[in-house]
Each structure stands twice: as structure tokens, then as C-alpha cells.
Design a protein around this nucleic acid. Sequence first.
DNA 1: TATTGTTATACTCTATAACTATA
DNA 2: TATAGTTATAGAGTATAACAATA
Lengths: 143, 143
Amino acid sequence: MTEHDYDLLPSLIGYNLRQAQTAVFQDFSESLKDCNITPGQFGVLVLIAANTGLNQTSLGNALGIDRSTVVAVIDKLEGRGLVERSPAPKDRRSYALRLSEQGAELLQRARGLVADHEKRIAGDLQPTEQHQLIALLSRLRGK
Amino acid sequence: MTEHDYDLLPSLIGYNLRQAQTAVFQDFSESLKDCNITPGQFGVLVLIAANTGLNQTSLGNALGIDRSTVVAVIDKLEGRGLVERSPAPKDRRSYALRLSEQGAELLQRARGLVADHEKRIAGDLQPTEQHQLIALLSRLRGK
DNA sequence: TATTGTTATACTCTATAACTATA
DNA sequence: TATAGTTATAGAGTATAACAATA
């Protein structure tokens, strides 16, 4: 196979970010194929578990996705019996989201697999370097 | 707006990567709306410019995308008159890709905007930190 | 036999705009 | 009027499988 000249691409933060994200996403999918969930779905489950009763709009805001997008995400998780839409006590327009028992079990299992996955992708990096990376990444988004 | 508990998410490399990537992608789109190209298209243009005459399969391999996916990417850039499929001299199955004059001009303009964009997203970071970040990211993908 | 480009198809993730029921 | 959820729709990005032309 021919060698390629990548020019300035390897010097760009954006390019390296994309490459890293692709690789990490792929490893995530393989690591969690037992649970069959995506990084996005894992985030949703974690957020619902940690904020039981939040509604869909609120969940979308927390994750930076539109509320119309949340519908399909929750539809899928509800269809698998992992998440429940229960009536919100104080506002009949909205649902209070919560994990089912099965959802809680799956999340527990997923946490272990995610921990393994994180170890694998960061296996090269010292703990100090991992913290550095996270700190640098979070400064990238401006906060 | 209610505060949320993000639990372990902020401690995960994968989560921070995704958030950063979303923010950077968005800034890229705004920064290059004058050229109207995406990060992926910019990569394609850079690669074609730096490896004039490469074919679609080779381009796909370099960027980690399937050759069936490359077709639509090149269709779009060719449709805008930025890229040309010229007959490959030694293999009549394939095309030798190259930039049109207009494509080369646009790429030049895009390089300037991308440089501005990179400065903006990394504005917080010292040059040393930027190099650190890139080094850490590239170690993430294992190579 | 293997490879290049292509097509048909499908799946994910995302958003906008308009609707409904409630507030 | 404004908000929560929904639907219809659309677009980007991706892949797999099969095909014709060529190697």
C-alpha cells in the first residue's frame, strides 16, 4: 500500500480529535457488545440513574441534544425495557424518566465494561497523563 | 434550569472526547461557512492536494472510510467543481484524483480559516499544552 | 481470482417545523 | 403565550453486499 502525505493534518487538534474519537468509539462498541449499548446510550442511562425523575427536555439539555432527538433515544431504551416513562407528579405534560430494574442491572454491568474499556484505550498513559488529557479536553470546550 | 449530576461521565476520556469533538466540529462549521466545507471534506482536499493522482480506494484507506463512502464524498466535491476524476494512466479501473484550479484556490482559503479556527478552539492553551494534547490524542489511537 | 468504482440499501445521529396537550 | 412531548421530514455520515469492468 502506498504511503500518504498527510500534510498539516497531524498538526491539527481537530484532526487528531476526530481520529481519536473514531478509535475510541470503535473500542467502546466492541467492549460493550455484551450490553449492546452505544456511548450515547450509556450517557443517557448514567444520567437517568443519577437524576431519577428528570424529564426528556432536561435530559436533552444535559447532553446537548434536541428534545426531538431524545424521543427516539428513549423509545429505543424503553422498547428494550431499560427505561420507564412514568407520569410526572407535578406536570402532566412531561414524563419522569427512571431506570427499570433491568436497566439498573444492565447499567451496573456496563459500568464494569466501560471501566475496562477506559483502561484499554488509555493503557499507554500514566494516570497523570490521563488527568492531563481530560483537563486539556475540557478546556477545549471552553468551560 | 435544574443542575444535573453527571456521575462518572466527566471522569471518562471517552465522554470528554465526545464533548470536545462536538464543540470543535461546531466551531469548524461556523469558521468555514464561507468555504462551505466540513472537517471531512477539508481532510479530503488536503489529502488530494498532497497526493495528486491517488485513487478513491487509496483515499478511503488513508482516512479510514469505506470506498463505497468515498464515492458520494467525491461526487459532491466534483459536483462543486473542486475535484476532478481524471483517468488513471496505468489502471483503467480507477481514477486519478486531483484538485481543480478552483479547488486549489478554495483549499488555500480554507487553510487560513482552519488556522484561525484552531487558534480559537485552542486559545486557552499554551503552545506546549497544545503539543501535549496532540501527543496524548495520537497515543490514544494506539499508534 | 482479486481489485476499482459503483449502486442499492439500510442504519445511526442529528436537526427544524409544526402539531397536541397541558401550563 | 410558553413549554413538554411527538411526528414528519430531511440531511450527513457510515457500512454491507452485489455487480461490471478491468487487472
